[in-house]
Amino acid sequence: MSNQKRILLVEDDPDIRAMITAFLAPTDCEVTETDNVDVAMRELANGRSFDLAILDFWLGNIHTVAIMDAIQSKVREVPIIIISGGNGSMDLERTEAISDVSGAVMFLQKPFRKADLLAAVASAIR
């Protein structure tokens, strides 16, 4: 039985998505990536199981709180890491607080380093 961890990555910036995927490559995790809330919600609704979710808080002007709620409603606990560089309408202090309220285990302020991400992932799925 494979012990490979499955990660759901939701990020709308293709460069950052590619960077995160590259950062995660040495961890041998299987990464399902999307830039879209609906696609992520479909993945979860279809019963796809993940060991970790890495979500950009803002996809344009749409927040990913609905994805956090969908993950929290699962019987199996799936840790959530939120990444954000902010958005014109909401500062990061508030963004982090909303993430914490919504069950995130970690908040990374963009831009972050490879070491920061890998440490957060290791801590979340240990």
């Binding site: 560089g85 902010g86 909401m90 500062d91 990061l92 202090e93 302020q109 920061d116």
Partner: peptide, 24 residues
């Protein structure tokens, strides 16, 4: 807010520019 930020942020992120970005 600044004291809280400093308490849980790695030292290399504890500069005015990062704190200002965090607080908007």
């Amino acid at each position: 807010s600044i004291l809280r930020y400093l308490a849980r942020t790695p030292a290399d992120r504890c500069e005015v520019r990062w704190i200002a970005q965090f607080l908007g």
